[in-house]
Design a protein around this nucleic acid. Structure first.
Lengths: 177, 177
DNA sequence: TTAACATATATAGCGCCGATATATCGGCCC
DNA sequence: GGGCCGATATATCGGCGCTATATATGTTAA
C-alpha cells in the first residue's frame, strides 16, 4: 500500500495540508501502525493532484509560506474505495530490539539490561497514549487504539516476566561477539 | 539498521550463501521480526566483501551456478559488535489491516468479516509456527519465538473478542466511501 | 539572548523492495 | 512422455520512500 493511498485515507477525515498529514503519521491517529514522512507525502500529494484525485487550494498567510490545503475529489474517493477492496498485505513487525537480543549471549549483561529497561519504558509510554480515548475518534480509530493497547500490554507482561531468560545468558564482562 | 548489519548477524550463525540468508528472512528464524530481500542482500554482501568484513568462497556445482559461500571475518565480527552497541530504533508495527478498518463504517459488512477471518487465520498459522521450539535454536532465538507467541496470542484474543465492534459499524450494502 | 520548538514546503541522496532475467533439476499431474 | 511448478542460485533495474537538509519565521522557554 503506497503513500498515495494513505494520503487519500487521511483526507477522508477532512481537508489537510502536507504538514498536517505528516503529523497524523508522527503523533496522530495513524502513528501506531503506519508510517510515512515528508519525503514521500509531498511528492504523493503532487502526484494525486496531477491525477485529479485531490484538489489543492493555496491559502496565503502573513509572514509564512502559503498553506496548501488538499481536499479529496469524488474521483479520489472512488480510488480509495477501490484500494480498500484490494488484497491486504500481512501486518509487518520489525524489531531491531529482538535482532540484538539474538546475540545476547555475546553481549555484556549491563547492555542487555539497559536495552530491556529502555524498551519497557518506551512501551509503557505508548500504553499511556493508547489508554486515552478521544471523543473525536471514529469507531475504527477507537478499535485500532484498543488493539494497540492489547498488544503493548502483552509485550510488557512478557518482557517483565521473561527478561531474566535473556539477561541470564548475557556475559558478565565485556562484549566478545 | 541496514541490511549489511543484518547479514553480518546472519553469518554469526554460520557460513551461508545469499540464497540461504534470504531464506532466514523469509521462512527462517528472522522472519517474524525482520525483513530483507534479494535486492538488498546481494548488494550488501558485495559491499561487505569489498570492505573485508566477510570473505567469499565460490564453490563450483555441476550444472548449477556457482554457490558463493560467505564467511564472517574478524573485522566483520568487530563491526557487528560495534553495531549492536549503537542506539536501537523503536520497534515498528505496520498494519494495512488496521488502516483499512479505519474505514469500516464505509465498507460492506461482508468485506470486513472476510478481512477479519483472513487475519485470524494468518495469525493462527503464525502461532503454530511459533509454538514449536527447535533444539538448534540459540537462547536468543527461543526468546524471540516466545515473545512472538505472546504477541500473536494477545492479537488473536483481542480480535476474537472485539471483532463485533468493527463489524457492527460496517454498512450492510455496497461500499460508498 | 539565544536556543529550542512549531509552522510550512520542498528536494537530494541513497537504501531497499518487488519484479524480472537466467539456468537447471526433481516431482507431480495428465 | 510432456508440460508445469517449485526449489536452488545469482544478479540487476526501476521506482518508491526514508533521512537529512535547506529555507523562512514566529513563539516559548531557559
Amino acid at each position: 500500500m503506497q503513500v498515495t493511498t494513505l494520503c487519500l485515507g487521511a483526507l477522508v477525515f477532512g481537508d489537510a495540508t502536507g504538514y498536517e498529514i505528516n503529523k497524523m503519521f508522527e503523533d496522530g491517529p495513524f502513528s501506531h501502525f503506519l508510517d510515512a514522512s515528508y519525503g514521500s507525502i509531498y511528492p504523493a500529494l503532487m502526484r494525486l493532484a496531477e491525477e485529479g484525485l485531490v484538489t489543492c487550494k493555496a491559502e496565503a498567510q502573513e509572514r509564512r509560506p502559503d498553506k496548501k490545503i488538499y481536499s479529496l475529489t469524488g474521483k479520489g474517493r472512488l480510488k480509495l474505495r477501490d484500494a480498500l477492496q484490494q488484497p491486504i498485505a500481512d501486518d509487518k513487525f520489525r524489531s531491531e530490539f529482538l535482532f540484538t537480543l539474538l546475540f545476547a549471549h555475546l553481549l555484556p549483561r549491563n547492555r542487555v539490561r539497559t536495552m530491556v529497561d529502555h524498551r519497557l519504558a518506551a512501551m509503557k509510554q505508548k500504553l499511556i497514549e493508547l489508554s486515552q480515548p478521544d471523543a473525536e475518534d471514529t469507531p475504527g480509530m477507537d478499535f485500532a487504539r484498543q488493539y494497540g493497547y492489547a498488544i503493548y500490554s502483552a509485550s510488557i507482561d512478557f518482557l517483565e516476566n521473561n527478561r531474566h531468560l535473556i539477561e541470564d545468558i548475557a556475559t558478565e564482562e565485556e562484549a566478545h561477539v
